[in-house]
């Protein structure tokens, strides 16, 4: 087992260099660079732009820029943002924490709700309940997150116009005057702001996830060994949860690797629409401005987490599925 883990870690090295170089190259392949925006400013001279370009190292060949960046990475320095003129990690970290306020609860909800819903759908296939849930799931799948967020904002405003009561905040993460609140009130305030974004993010994920869960369960339930289990007189509960469910979740365990980078990569456009100070708006800005090291640095964090996550999920698989052995 130890040998296996060591071997896997060794494999990660070329993957890491390959992936970072590819990311770096693709960002650089986009036309222009961070300073192109400045070129249309009538007040800035071309000499100034050329000077800044050489200060930022953007005038050097790509491989040289990449090697320099790698050198810094190996010293645990993700790079320096052009736009913020500050180390990438300092800027990214508080935003990632903000995003986690939405992402962590919604990931938990996802598992807590989607798995039972999927199982229910499989056990009561084509029942009224299953049809209703399927119907809702398709709606959830069809509505994009950002649009659902806009609908919620509209509803909140309409309720406010009619009753004068703000049920949930329209946008943002904290109320005005937040700094003066005592610690408990601060937590409650953030929780109050987080309700709608969490619902929005979870809804569409539940839809997809529960459909896959249902499909997996249905497939496993039609296997011979389930019939055998029933034939030898096991309680239905044992059949479903011990024999069927454990096999049905294997593909999910294999995908757990994706959850780790998912935790830091933000809640998506909901953050933009609802003015949540998470990582998505920051990353979108950086992409637009071609803030090279910001994007590359953030991709690197995600990459490392993905590699660690994949390793973890492979190890977890041996625990869930006794048929899998790494020797």
């Amino acid at each position: 087992m130890t040998a296996y883990i060591l071997r896997r870690i060794l494999y990660l090295v070329p993957t890491f260099f390959g992936a970072t170089f590819l990311a770096f190259l693709i960002i650089q392949l986009a036309p222009g660079d961070y300073l192109t925006q400045l070129e249309l400013d009538p007040k800035v001279t071309p000499e100034t732009i050329a000077r800044l370009r050489s200060q930022f190292g953007l005038d050097r060949p790509i491989h040289e820029q990449y090697l320099l960046w790698m050198h810094n990475l190996l010293h645990l320095n993700l790079g320096y943002s052009f736009a913020y003129q500050a180390p990438v990690l300092d800027i990214v970290w508080p935003r990632v924490v903000n995003s986690m306020v939405i992402v962590v609860p919604s990931t938990l909800f996802l598992f807590l709700v989607a798995i039972p819903v999927g199982i229910y759908g499989a056990l009561r296939q084509y029942s009224l309940g299953d049809r209703v849930i399927s119907f809702l799931a398709y709606i959830g799948l069809a509505i994009p997150n950002f649009f659902l967020a806009l609908i919620f904002m509209y509803l909140i405003l309409q309720v406010y116009f009619r009753t004068g009561v703000m049920v949930f905040p329209v946008s943002g993460m904290t109320s005005s005057g937040f700094e003066q609140f005592d610690p408990w009130k601060k937590i409650l305030d953030i929780a109050w702001h987080a309700v709608i974004p969490i619902i929005v993010v979870t809804t569409s994920d539940i839809a997809g996830f529960s459909r896959v869960m249902r499909g997996q369960m249905l497939e496993v339930l039609s296997q011979d060994y389930i019939r055998t289990a029933r034939a030898k007189g096991l309680a239905e509960r044992v059949v479903v949860y011990k024999h069927a469910l454990r096999n049905a979740v294997i593909p999910f365990v294999a995908n757990i690797g994706g959850i780790l980078p998912g935790l830091i990569s933000g809640a998506g456009l909901v953050e933009v629409v609802m003015a949540w100070p998470g990582i998505t708006p920051l990353l979108l800005d950086s992409l637009q401005q071609q803030d090279l090291y910001m994007v590359a640095g953030f991709l690197t964090i995600g990459l490392v987490l993905l590699m660690v996550g994949n390793l973890l999920s492979d190890l977890l698989l041996t625990w869930v599925d006794p048929r899998i052995r790494y020797e």
Partner: peptide, 20 residues
């Protein structure tokens, strides 16, 4: 002066309409 960062102009409008 309290300056909120609201990236989406629709959200800005909603906050203005709500008197925020």
């Amino acid at each position: 002066r309290e300056i909120r960062i609201v990236k989406d102009t629709n959200a800005q409008l909603a906050e203005f309409l709500a008197g925020n």
